[in-house]
Write a protein that binds this DNA or RNA. Structure first.
Length: 564
RNA sequence: UGAGGGUUGGUCUAGUGGCAAGACGACGGGUUCUGGCCCCGUUAACCCAGGUUCGAAUCCUGGACCCUCAGCCA
């Protein structure tokens, strides 16, 4: 809550202000209709999530609606597989377009009619210059362009030529339809932009019906207009295109939505450009688009992130017009906050160290009560078996501990969570000198974890009974890049984190976890939040992905000590 | 160097002529059967220079720096 009493979910930003002014003035009849317009030529990433949350969120907040529209005007790059993955990702994020699913390609007939109208009013012409010539005629950033020699063809000739373009009487690249605006405009976008080009390509929806396809600038504004969009939100790079957006709608004298630009998301320690993402996949740096290290929606899903945490993140980063780089730590904070409240706690030992409790009866097993989630007592308790031989984390023992190490060491006493106090009496090594086992004694009076005499221990360790432990594979994920902004590096692949994935076999789970249904999330106590991978995990053969670690004060102390 | 945008603590965001606020991070402390959660505290910002004004992050002028645009991509 801020001082106005508004929660984060309703805090204002410049787009909300514009919408509220429009509602107040009755500009669009008080309606709010937005749209999310992906091109189906790749997978959605966290940057798209920002746009999805913004568009669907605004529509929800102002009781309007949000359309899902596929901007499929380029048959060379688009296909059905992407349409399906995009729909799945939007749904997973928790949004419903309620049947308002559209394709720019569905408007091809209408768009063609609009093009003819533009020709008839003298606002468009067929140009027969080659692509290279067009580039040359366009001029540069500082010099004006010059008119094409075909610019003054008659309406009749243009109509005939455009008809021939449609009928397939020209080769690709032989001619295009251009808007007739101003070759000396200081805005290069307005120097007679291309409206239609010829492509003899099968389209994933219209099939072979068309061999001419509209360009983004022509199709997008008119699609918005046809659908009655009120506020057309896009990223900053389309700022220069707004003049053309407005020009086309004005010349055609049709319903005119308002284009509003905002800054796209940049996230630290990752890349979000489609080109770089493709390079990661095709270069084999990651294992596909849904690799848990990928910033794609499917990657975050596979990693174990919750939709709610991503929505919360998108709300917290705000919406503004300046370029920014959001710290990945904020996303991690969001998922921790969500999972802290909802994830069941369990005990898992990642790197097992065998501990024998010498004074514990040889063949006894007892059941101890563990709390499933201290943040939500309604999640209840469970019984965890304890016996003479257990595993603890190798990191939880040091033979020669530094000052601030509170965990187990020779002669020292610690608590086993929900169980007993134990004291280390001996360290056993194998032939190579490696510590292979610890011998300890326990205090029977501390059953359940409390000492009747009131003596304190400085640490509580998680553990798993050796006789009851279940084996599993656990994958430890870390930032994909070791630098904050890989995009500004000469070769971004050179700063990929070599430790971004560590696969651990033979991790010891408390019993009951062997049949974890894929898709479930847990907190492994003292370690982090983990997800039973929905692809690789199966009942009886669990595989967990680490979503995020717990905040780790000890790790920070260690880092400080290393610096000294 | 033509045009369009932008610049508030380390990061993100608020502010719309009147006490520069919040979140994340970092640091310190309290609490604790998770070195988690929670609680408390500390740190730290208006790009620069003029001007208007009783008063400027906000308005004006000039400058610096950053981003976008020269696809028959979106």
């Amino acid at each position: 809550m801020d001082k106005t009493g508004a929660s984060a979910s309703e805090r204002s930003h410049f787009i909300r202000q514009i919408i509220e002014e429009d509602i107040a003035s009755g500009k669009y009849g008080g309606k709010v209709i937005t749209r999310f317009p992906p091109e189906p030529n790749g997978y959605l990433h966290i940057g798209h999530a920002k746009s999805i949350c913004l568009n669907f969120g605004l529509a929800f907040q102002y009781h309007g609606r949000c359309h899902l529209r596929f901007d499929d005007t380029n048959p060379m790059k688009e296909n059905l597989e992407y349409v399906e993955s995009i729909k799945e990702d939007v749904r997973w994020l928790g949004f419903d377009w309620k049947g308002h699913e559209y394709f720019a390609s569905d408007y091809f007939d209408q768009l063609y009619e609009y093009a003819i109208e533009l020709i008839k009013s003298g606002n468009a012409y067929v140009d027969s210059l080659s692509p290279e010539q067009i580039r040359h005629y366009r001029g540069t950033l500082s010099e004006p362009g010059k008119p094409s020699p075909y610019r003054d063809r008659s309406v009749e000739e243009n109509l005939e030529l455009f008809g021939k373009m449609r009928k397939g009487e020209f080769a690709e690249g032989e001619c295009v339809l251009r808007a007739k605006i101003d070759m000396s405009s200081p805005n290069i976008v307005m120097r007679d932009p291309t409206l239609y080009r010829i492509r003899y390509r099968h389209h994933h929806r219209s099939g072979g019906k068309w061999c001419i396809y509209p360009m983004y600038d022509f199709a997008h504004c008119l699609s918005d207009s046809i659908e009655g969009i009120t506020h057309s939100l896009c990223s900053l790079e389309f700022e220069n295109n707004r003049e053309l957006y407005d020009w086309i709608l004005d010349k055609l004298n049709v319903y005119h939505p308002k284009q509003i630009e905002f800054a796209r998301l940049n996230l630290s320690h990752t890349v979000l450009s489609k080109r770089k993402l493709i390079r990661l996949v095709e270069g084999g740096y990651v294992d596909g688009w849904d690799d848990p290290r990928m910033p794609t929606i499917s990657g975050f899903k596979r990693r174990g992130y919750t939709p709610a945490s991503i929505r919360d993140f998108c709300e917290r980063i705000g919406v503004a017009r300046r370029d920014s780089m959001v710290d990945l730590a904020l996303l991690e904070h969001c998922v921790r906050e969500d999972l802290n409240k909802h994830a069941m706690r369990v005990m898992v030992v990642l790197r097992p160290l065998r501990v024998v409790i010498d004074n514990y009866p040889e063949n006894d097993t007892e059941l101890l009560t563990a709390i499933n989630n201290p943040e939500d007592r309604e999640m209840g308790t469970r019984q965890v078996p304890f016996s003479r031989v257990i595993y603890i984390e190798r990191d939880d023992f040091m033979e020669d501990p530094p000052k601030k190490f509170f965990r187990l060491a020779p002669g020292r006493e610690v608590r086993l969570r929900y169980a007993y106090f134990i004291r280390c009496t001996d360290v056993i090594r194998d032939e190579s000198g490696q510590i292979s086992e610890l011998r300890c004694t326990y205090d029977p009076a501390t059953r359940g974890g409390d000492s009747p005499d009131g003596r304190k221990v400085k640490a509580t360790l998680h553990w798993v009974s050796a006789a009851h432990a279940v084996r599993a594979t656990v994958r430890l994920y870390d930032h994909l890049f070791i630098v904050e902004n890989p995009a500004e590096e000469e070769d971004f692949t050179a700063c990929i984190n070599p430790g971004s994935l560590e696969t651990l076999e033979g991790c010891m789970l408390e019993p009951g976890l062997e049949n974890t249904p894929p898709g479930l999330r847990y907190q492994f106590e003292r370690l982090g939040y983990f997800y039973a991978d929905h692809k690789d995990s199966a009942p009886g053969r669990p595989v967990f992905n680490r979503i995020v670690t717990l905040r780790d004060t000890w790790a920070r102390i260690q880092k400080q000590q290393q610096k000294k």
